[in-house]
Amino acid sequence: MSSSSSDEVDEMLNEDFEEMFDQQVDNFIDSIVDVQANKPKRRAYIERDREQGHNQLWNDYFSEHPTYPREMFRRHFRMNKPLFLRIVDRLSNEVPYFEQRRNAHGRYGLSALQKYEYLRRPTREDLQRLLDVGEVHGFPGMIGSIDCMHWEWKNCPTAWRG
């Protein structure tokens, strides 16, 4: 009885252990699959109707018969319209950011008029917010951006050039 019964007990324990082990592995795999299945696959697309925004801006201020008079343009943009258009023209010809480009879907991005409309001199609140953000990130007193020219940074894009 000792030899055969101990072999039977060992075999039963091994089977129970293997069953418990298989169950634990299955549960672990299922939990990983469930977590990955719940991850969002894509960002939600938000239609911003950039073309309509450009057309509205053009009709409001730059068309032959604009919605708003010259005085409103001057008050809103703080310069006269010919100067504004000269600046927009020069920026769109000389600064790549201001060129209107197509995105990956072939749709046009913001026009130079739309991009330039947001440029303005920062207010005191803007400057203080920028200083606070810089200080939180370890750059007290910094308002501008870092271009990797004045300090060593191993992940700086200019270091990747080879």
Rank of each mutant, 00 (worst) to 15 (best):
M72C: 03
Y61L: 06
E125R: 02
H76P: 00
L110K: 14
F139R: 04
N27Q: 08
P140D: 09
M20W: 14
H76Q: 10
V25F: 07
F73Y: 08
N103F: 11
R74D: 05
R107I: 00
K39Y: 10
H54G: 01
D10F: 01
V25W: 06
T123F: 03
I87E: 09
N80A: 04
L119A: 12
L57S: 02
D26F: 05
P40H: 15
Q56K: 09
Q36T: 10
Q52M: 06
Y118T: 13
H76S: 05
H54K: 00
F21N: 09
H54I: 02
D16Q: 14
R102S: 01
D10T: 03
F98I: 11
F17R: 14
F73N: 06
R42Y: 15
A37K: 14
F139K: 08
E51V: 01
E15C: 13
Q114V: 00
N27W: 13
L91H: 08
N27L: 11
F17W: 14
E47R: 02
A44N: 04
E117K: 08
T123V: 02
Y68S: 05
M72G: 01
H76Y: 07
D26L: 09
T67G: 05
L113K: 07
F73A: 04
R129G: 02
H137L: 13
D126K: 00
E11Q: 07
V9N: 02
E8V: 01
R78L: 11
P40I: 10
E15G: 09
I87A: 07
N14P: 00
G106Y: 02
K115T: 13
D60T: 07
Q128N: 04
E11R: 01
H65F: 14
R124D: 05
P96H: 14
E64H: 15
R42C: 14
R75Y: 12
M142R: 14
E117D: 06
F62P: 07
E135L: 03
